[in-house]
């Protein structure tokens, strides 16, 4: 464990807690893409298949349970909570995410570390995570200005993966064997997808204006 990875995990945790706070406190999920939340739930479930078979550390196990639990709780809330579900932008959240699921799965069948069920699903979850934010970014574009909690959610989510890139650089420099090419390349693609959002987020923060994404 290094400081970059810890910072990344904490930022990731904050992004999830910000989202849970927004939904719980305001009893509203306007501006949040249910499709992105469902993709993240799939990412965590398929990535942590080793939850009960490989014990790495208490921290690792606890964080896996928190990520799986919170992502499923958010999806449940947005789908079934009688108050929250009314504020879901159903007609704006129309990204055809089956494409993302299909492409990620096919890529995982081709590119993986070992051809075992667990490894193929692990690679699938890595590729899927890289593109899972797309429905949310499209929803932010369509709903124009971003209410600040949704914007913060995306900001922390992008920052977490940027910290992980620093973590991979650090591990590449300090460990003799580096076997994280799948995560590393996918993480770079993921962070690049956030780059334009970060640009507009920074501009709006600098001008102290509401975040206006170009339509």
């Amino acid at each position: 464990m290094n400081i970059f990875r810890l910072a990344g995990d904490m930022t990731h945790l904050i992004s999830v807690l910000v989202l849970l706070l927004k939904i719980y406190a305001t009893k509203s999920c306007s501006g949040i893409s249910l499709k992105t939340q469902e993709l993240y739930a799939i990412v965590f479930v398929t990535r942590y298949l080793d939850l009960f078979t490989d014990f790495i550390s208490l921290y690792n196990t606890v964080m896996k349970l928190v990520f799986i639990g919170s992502s499923l709780a958010i999806v449940w809330c947005m789908r079934y909570h009688r108050v929250v579900r009314r504020s879901y932008d159903r007609e704006l959240d129309t990204f055809r995410y089956w494409i993302l699921l299909g492409v990620s799965f096919i890529l995982a069948l081709v590119l993986h570390e070992k051809f075992t069920l667990q490894e193929v699903f692990w690679a699938f979850s890595i590729y899927l995570e890289a593109v899972a934010i797309l429905p949310q970014l499209v929803l932010l574009q369509r709903s124009g200005n971003v209410d600040n909690l949704a914007g913060q959610y995306v900001f922390f989510l992008g920052a977490y993966r940027a910290f992980y890139i620093l973590n991979w650089i650090y591990r590449y420099l300090t460990e003799q064997r580096f076997t994280r090419w799948i995560s590393c390349v996918s993480g770079l693609v993921q962070t690049a997808l956030y780059a334009d959002f970060f640009y507009y987020y920074f501009i709006s923060w600098k001008n102290n204006a509401k975040l206006q994404l170009p339509a």
């Binding site: 464990m1 490989d54 690792n60 896996k64 570390e113 973590n167 076997t179 995560s183």
Partner: peptide
Amino acid sequence: REQPQDHDEL
């Protein structure tokens, strides 16, 4: 104490 696990990251 890093496990030799390939996937010790979240």
